[in-house]
């Protein structure tokens, strides 16, 4: 009886898939804006509104939208991940790859001032390539270093300030 297969477990079973935190996050963002707006004057003397009013409006809007989103989630709103080139929304997340790529994005925060652009580029490049499944690590490290060094030379020449080439060595 192919017609009688239940499509999804009804009731409490699907609760784990409901992203309550998403709505909560939007509400929290709104509250953050409202908190920031508290210290600002809402009305200026001549203009009807001061610097705080727009902040209050945006914060209030976010809280309201977050609440609507929570309501939608309670009503089983479906969130379908976007399809892009090279990625299928239907697949579940591969977390090691995600965190490797995240490490690549985090690396510059710690390295760019002390180690400079070329070494930062080398690290980021090798990490992203690893996240995408490339295991030719030595080649990737080299390509990243060359790409970083060449970009540094080119963009510095174009007038962009990118910091030292190798600040640790004083260059």
């Amino acid at each position: 009886m192919p017609n009688s297969i239940p499509e999804a477990p009804a009731g409490g079973g699907s609760d784990t898939a409901r992203p309550w935190w998403l709505g909560g996050l939007v509400v929290a963002l709104g509250c953050l804006c409202l908190y920031g707006a508290f210290s600002l004057p809402q009305a200026a003397r001549y203009a009807g509104i001061g610097p705080g009013l727009f902040v209050t409006l945006v914060g209030g809007g976010l809280v309201l939208l977050g609440l609507i989103l929570l309501l939608q989630i309670a009503r089983d709103e479906q969130f379908i991940p976007q399809d892009t080139e090279d990625a299928s929304g239907g697949e579940s997340a591969h977390w090691p790859a995600f965190f490797t790529a995240l490490a690549a994005a985090l690396a510059p925060i710690f390295t760019i001032e002390r180690l400079g652009m070329p070494i930062t580029a080398m690290l980021s490049f090798a990490l992203v390539a690893h996240a995408f499944g490339s295991r030719k690590t030595v080649v990737n490290v080299l390509v990243g270093a060359v790409l970083g060094a060449l970009s540094w030379l080119l963009f510095t020449r174009l007038g962009l300030q990118l910091g030292g080439f190798l600040p640790m060595a004083g260059i």
């Binding site: 992203v128 995408f132 490339s134 962009l160």
Partner: peptide, 17 residues
């Protein structure tokens, strides 16, 4: 892998710059 790695490098340069 190398394409996306390159995109991140240029993104970092763009933002740092």
């Amino acid at each position: 892998p190398q394409l996306y790695a390159g995109i991140l490098v240029f993104a970092t340069i763009g933002i740092w710059g």
